[in-house]
């Protein structure tokens, strides 16, 4: 059984159709890249799966159980966590407390102590152990992105919805981040839906790629198939081809 099964999902805002009958399936421990031009509905898809927005029609199933329409916090507790494209740390709290909130509530722990221990473990995994006592508001933009990832992992989620966690990195930072992501994936075996503009990241971390355009899936396949797909090259990659 796939970890997440999205069937015929539609979402409209007023008159604008952001998603038009999207279906996809994310396997256990699978990492699926989600690409498409701006406004193609990638972020909306993540938001609907995470419960931040309610679908107009269609369903999302998690391990066979319908979760569409549930509150975001309930969905997190069932094991689906999303990062924000623009990080939203709890600015006045320390990095450690930020992650502890996710551990405490995402994993339904009883008290703060074990949550802090879980936070320390998670911060070590993402390589932020030395940042744990800083106020989250004082982190650099990149550190905030990584904190988003740490919070998502700390919830104990088996499915991660990652919204552009690799954006805005220098070439070396990107290399390190990709390596870190692969290491975490091997260790934690989560499934992930990765929205990404940085093609190098998508092709390096994902086993499959789904291409959205105007709220529809226009192609799906292995990274290799996708970069050679005529429609994808036309719709998304344009004449520039696949670079970086």
């Amino acid at each position: 059984m796939p970890a997440v099964e999205v069937s015929n999902l539609s979402k409209s805002f007023g008159g604008v159709q952001a998603l038009r009958g999207v279906s996809l399936s994310l396997g256990e421990s699978e990492v699926l890249g989600l690409i498409g031009p701006n406004g193609s509905g990638k972020s909306t898809l993540l938001n609907v799966i995470a419960g931040v927005q309610k679908p107009t029609s269609g369903t999302v199933k998690l391990g066979g159980r319908a979760i569409s329409g549930m509150r975001p916090d309930a969905i997190v507790k069932l094991g689906v966590a999303k990062t924000y494209q623009i990080p939203k740390p709890f600015a006045s709290m320390s990095v450690r407390e930020n992650v502890a909130v996710a551990a405490l509530y995402g994993r339904r722990l009883r008290s703060v102590g074990p949550a802090l221990e879980e936070a320390d473990r998670t911060l070590a995994i993402v390589g932020m152990g030395d940042r744990s006592d800083l106020a989250a508001g004082s982190l650099t933009a990149q550190e905030k992105k990584r904190l988003e990832l740490a919070k998502a992992i700390a919830t104990g989620a088996k499915v991660l919805l990652l919204d552009e966690v690799f954006a805005g990195l220098s070439s070396e930072e990107l290399r390190d981040s990709i390596a870190l992501f692969r290491k975490m994936h091997e260790e934690l075996r989560f499934s992930a839906l990765v929205v990404e503009h940085v093609m190098r990241a998508v092709l390096n971390v994902s086993e499959g790629v789904v291409v959205l355009e105007e709220g529809r899936v226009i192609a799906a396949g292995s990274p290799d198939q996708i970069v050679h797909d005529e429609r994808v090259v036309q719709a998304y990659l344009g004449s520039k081809g696949v670079g970086t």
């Binding site: 740390p89 709290m93 996710a102 405490l104």
Partner: peptide, 26 residues
Amino acid sequence: NRGKVGLGIRAIKDEEDAAAAAGVNP
């Protein structure tokens, strides 16, 4: 303030949507 509720409440005060994304029921 010291307990589980306090930590969740502080998260809500800082960023309510992000608190929900971390599993807090605001």
